[in-house]
């Protein structure tokens, strides 16, 4: 009886979890394979014919290859934002952990504020217009950096506190200037948190919908999330194409999940518990 318990419970859990969590994904995949007529029924049925390739071609080429542009934009956005985030957040975390100054409480307060306060949208747009950043991809990069800095800093600071200060001092005696200490000694040692940071932030920024919606209007520099949102109205009657699109933009997070599951979970829980 004590042995049967976990097995029966386990089977029940597998069935329920499959129903709740897997069926929606199965639905996405099945619909992406169907032709337009069958997809319109919105049923959870096996595709009568396999049209994934035609669907893919149509989604990708529609509106003058917009999805390709969107993927390129999203990639640029994600890679540059995360790069800047990693370097700038690590620099702040480093000084914050190492140097006790009267500014620290202010910085800590700003970090908490950044985690809590919703950004003031229209004033931001107004300001970005003034700076020539509105509607520009590099403007959005800076926005993503500004909004996600607090979380990255928290991740880094906690880790830097565990690196012995003697390493900095040994480097200083060896003749390292502040930039050498940071880039040649500290940053390489931060690699585990950097991986966590890269993974967590890139998933978040790749999936971000709200900020591109506000700060990156216009079709020529749409991101993949915006494209999906726009396709929603355009493909109102072509669910096969809509779900092919969803399938496509789910692949990058899936890959990240398969390879970095552990870092994501570690990063999200560590950041959350400390925040």
């Amino acid at each position: 009886m004590s042995k049967a318990g976990p097995i029966v419970g386990g089977i029940a859990a597998i069935v329920i979890s499959a129903l709740v969590f897997l069926v929606p994904f199965a639905f996405i995949i099945l619909t992406a394979f169907k032709d337009r007529a069958q997809a319109a029924a919105l049923d959870f049925t096996w595709p009568a014919s396999f049209n994934l390739w035609t669907n893919l071609v149509e989604v990708v080429t529609t509106r003058n290859w917009m999805l390709v542009t969107a993927f390129i934009n999203s990639t640029i956005l994600t890679v540059s934002s995360v790069t800047l985030l990693v370097v700038f957040a690590a620099m702040v975390g480093f000084i914050l952990a190492r140097r006790k100054s009267r500014w620290n409480p202010l910085v800590e307060f700003l970090i908490l504020a950044g985690l809590m306060i919703p950004p003031a949208v229209v004033p931001t747009i107004w300001l970005m217009q003034g700076l020539g950043l509105f509607g520009k991809l590099h403007g959005l990069v800076l926005i993503e950096v500004a909004y996600n800095l607090p979380f990255s800093i928290i991740l880094y600071r906690a880790f830097i506190a565990t690196i012995p200060r003697e390493l900095d001092e040994a480097a200083i005696i060896d003749g390292a200037r502040p930039l050498d200490v940071f880039f040649r000694v500290i940053l390489p040692l931060l690699w585990p948190v950097t991986v966590t940071n890269i993974v967590v932030q890139s998933v978040g920024i790749f999936n971000d919908f709200t900020n591109p919606l506000y700060y990156l209007p216009g079709n020529q520099n749409a991101t993949v999330q915006l494209t999906l949102y726009n396709f929603q109205s355009q493909f109102n009657t072509s669910y096969n194409l809509l779900f092919t699109n969803i399938l496509l933009i789910t692949i990058p997070p899936l890959i990240v999940f398969l390879f970095f599951n552990r870092q994501i979970v570690a990063g999200m829980t560590a950041g959350a518990v400390k925040g």
């Binding site: 800047l84 370097v87 700038f88 957040a89 620099m91 702040v92 480093f94 000084i95 190492r98 140097r99 100054s101 500014w103 910085v107 700003l110 950044g114 306060i117 950004p119 003031a120 004033p123 931001t124 107004w126 300001l127 970005m128 700076l131 800076l142 926005i143 950096v145 500004a146 909004y147 800095l149 800093i153 900095d168 200083i172 502040p178 200490v181 940071f182």
Partner: peptide, 22 residues
């Protein structure tokens, strides 16, 4: 060895694009 200007890049981006609009 821990210069305060390390805060600067983050502070400018955060200050201009988050704090100022707020």
């Amino acid at each position: 060895p821990y210069p305060a200007w390390f805060f600067l890049p983050a502070a400018i981006i955060y200050g201009v694009l988050f704090l100022a609009p707020t």
